[in-house]
Design a protein around this nucleic acid. Structure first.
Lengths: 233, 233
DNA sequence: GCTCGCACACTGTGATCACATTCAAAGATT
DNA sequence: AATCTTTGAATGTGATCACAGTGTGCGAGC
């Protein structure tokens, strides 16, 4: 049992192949490595990951169910396109759910969490300074989810993650903003509110953080993708 | 083309088999025809619907992705059990999202919609009077979704539907309440608010309607399912 | 009579194949 | 030369099969 259950470090024992494909795709989507309109095929994905059609097929369908990908009328899956209107809807949904998650988390927050959040925030600033856009996004995600995870949220978290997945393909719009414009967030305010035991202050900080971060995107979107029938790849 | 594309009325042309299985299961779940803990197998579902494993498999995985079903550690799918705590979380999420949906819908509401909602409400009362529990649930669903559908909501609606799906298996708890206790809702207040062009009143009516409807369930849940290891079927 | 062990049925996972549809490029016709 | 047709590759869907893990029930042994 000792030697047989030990998998080589490269052979990730992630229970099922479908799960591995799913997580890989999901991470890539959330980090903005795909662009709106990019189409994907079952066989192509399977070949790229060295599996058969089945795991790729199930991973794609799962991401479609989570609204991370869309099913075209052709029955082919693609990264969704988005209108400014949909973007505003995503923003409102994020505010509603994440403010609620923050409020639920609030009673469980403590100075230790504030320190951890501050550490993440520092790393995020370092990423900005280093021009590490991916690191910046990753830290931003870590900040929010570390806060929300304080209270067990079996219902809320999947909903919020679905929203983040839907936004992922459009984060690349902010890539060039990293450096040109000053990317400010409300993370310090949130940390301060936790230390001051100010629930409303925390809720406000989260809300403004989301609105600030998402606010500029519809404009960028409108400027960037006027060709509605652009071939992705 | 004329005769070949015409399907017999019973052979529903629903594009894919998987879709048909999915919709059938989904409807059954939302109407509370399954109970918490009920387990389902791919082969069993396939045989029951007369298809092969594949459509049943994909339909189940899709419902799992939408949180309507859960994946047990055995990798088997079952109707989720729920704790009172999770129920409260569902209630809060519903309030947050559906109030938002109602506010988004508000500018598009008009007297015609108010009349349609009133008609649905009348049918709902008739269902209550007739002891038609399924009809009551169906009308309640129709009322809420008719309101939310006023504004296009590609993001919000799937999230809300996911929440309703998660609640579905527990609606049976209210079955015996239909008749014993007086089931009141805030639908009249919502209709009045639409007529009065009172957005805040509409939001409040929806919030109270949700809280009233869901409020009693945790208690019923606690009374009903003390045996945590009950064999479902 | 009770407990431990073994065998068998059952389930999900993954692979492979067959088929209908779709998309596109090449060829033929006007 | 432009347009319609045809042919071919490619894709999603569904079916079937092989395999490993799990759970259950039966039977042997203490």
């Amino acid at each position: 049992m000792a030697s047989d259950d030990q998998h080589p470090p490269d052979t990730i024992p992630t229970a099922t192949l479908q799960e591995r494909v799913y997580r890989e795709l999901r991470e890539a989507i959330m980090l903005g490595q795909f662009h709106p309109g990019d189409a994907m095929t079952i066989r192509g994905l399977a070949e790229k990951l060295g599996t058969s059609m089945m795991p790729a097929r199930e991973a794609l369908r799962r991401l479609v169910a989570e609204r991370a990908l869309t099913l075209l009328p052709n029955r082919r899956v693609a990264v969704p396109r988005m209108t400014p209107e949909t973007f505003r809807e995503l923003t409102e949904a994020r505010v509603a759910l994440e403010v609620l998650a923050a409020r639920r988390a609030f009673p469980a927050t403590d100075p230790a969490l504030a320190d951890r959040l501050a550490a993440i925030n520092t790393q995020q600033d370092e990423a900005i300074a280093a021009g590490d856009w991916s690191g910046y996004q990753e830290r931003n995600r870590a900040f929010h989810f570390a806060l929300y995870a304080c209270a067990p949220a079996q219902v809320l978290m999947p909903l919020i993650e679905s929203l983040w997945l839907q936004i992922g393909p459009f984060l690349y719009l902010t890539r060039e903003s990293l450096g040109t414009t000053y990317l400010d967030d409300r993370h310090e305010e949130a940390i301060a509110a936790i230390k001051d035991r100010d629930e409303d202050g925390l809720a406000l900080a989260i809300e403004q953080d989301i609105r600030d971060g998402m606010g500029g995107l519809p404009a960028l979107l409108a400027n960037r993708v006027p060709p509605p029938t652009g071939g992705p790849e």
